[in-house]
């Protein structure tokens, strides 16, 4: 059986400029930050990012590597507004398509099921429809016959288009060598659908175990990422930092505050970048470890 393990550098080398890339997790929760950091130091450019946005979107948008973002929000959860995202938007430096967060789910689901759209009431009457001419509506075909609902006679629905992805990146609590993975925390979010919607599917994980042993990490019912959904597996311990990766670790609120503070001042941001983001993942993790020791 294929061994899907690879390195962070190799995984990033499979991404190309101009790609539409979906990023799993939600807000400042279980984001594949190790690979986001690696993309920051890559030559990639002209990307479209599709995300339930957190610091992944803030950092990538701020890097100048992103042309367009498709999102329903960008937040740090415990801190409502993402500072880098705010700055980039207020400079008018990026294209945004805003999508209701439920519609976003339907868009990924449609792509994963290989249908062009899924219908919804969500979006009707709002600017997620009115503002984007590429978004369409559809009349219900069930106007008569046994499946017609008189209450919806003449009703039009939003046809949420499939959000097809060139690549998807998600972070799991554990994966195995064959590309199965488990989310042992409280919410799998929509990571399964990100993978299902993408051509190139990358799973990073806190740890990679032997095939057939994910049930030792947690209940098998939590191992909802099966190997039909994955191409590459990368072990990235503490790889979601500073976002949460329950139950392995909580969000690093101290670090997140420092990130927000640094983002408010160009000089402080330059120092933050030099310390945390300019090097490779090992350099980042060493700096984080040093911080922890200094805090104690």
């Amino acid at each position: 059986m294929a061994d899907k393990r690879t390195t962070l550098a190799e995984a990033v080398s499979r991404l190309e400029s101009g790609m539409t890339i979906g990023i799993g997790g939600w807000g400042s929760r279980r984001k594949p930050m190790a690979i986001v950091r690696a993309i920051l130091n890559s030559e990639l450019t002209d990307l479209t990012i599709v995300s339930y946005g957190g610091p992944d979107v803030g950092l990538l948008a701020n890097s100048g590597k992103v042309r367009k973002v498709i999102a329903g929000f960008v937040t740090l959860d415990s801190i409502a507004l993402e500072p880098l995202w705010r700055q980039v938007r207020q400079r008018g430096a990026i294209e945004l398509q805003e999508v209701d967060e439920g519609l976003f789910y339907l868009g990924l689901q449609a792509a994963a099921w290989r249908v062009p759209f899924l219908p919804a009431r969500a979006g009707l009457g709002s600017d997620v429809l009115a503002r984007y001419p590429e978004m369409k509506t559809i009349a219900s075909p069930y106007v008569d016959g046994p499946f017609a609902d008189p209450a919806d006679a003449g009703a039009t629905f939003l046809a949420m288009p499939a959000l097809r992805l060139d690549a998807a990146i998600v972070h799991a609590n554990a994966a195995d060598t064959a590309g199965n993975a488990t989310f042992t925390g409280p919410d799998p979010y929509f990571d399964e659908l990100f993978l299902g919607a993408a051509d190139l599917r990358i799973v990073t994980a806190e740890r990679v175990v032997e095939n057939g042993t994910l049930d030792a990490v947690g209940p098998l019912a939590k191992a909802t990422i099966h190997r039909l959904l994955t191409d590459l597996v990368v072990e990235t311990p503490n790889g979601a930092h500073f976002t949460s990766c329950a139950p392995d670790y909580d969000r690093d609120e101290v670090f997140q505050k420092a990130y927000v503070t640094a983002a408010s001042d160009p000089e402080a941001w330059a120092a933050f970048t030099a310390r945390y983001l300019a090097g490779d993942e090992a350099t980042y993790q060493a700096a984080v470890l040093e911080d922890l020791e200094n805090r104690a």
Binding site: G72, V74, E95, E98, D100, L103, S126, R131
Partner: peptide
């Protein structure tokens, strides 16, 4: 303005869907 807001807030979130459902 949508393309260059004066103040970027959190985003539409689930408000479009909530309000019609």
């Amino acid at each position: 303005p949508a393309n260059q807001p004066k103040v970027q807030l959190i985003g539409v979130r689930g408000a479009p869907g909530n309000s019609v459902n």
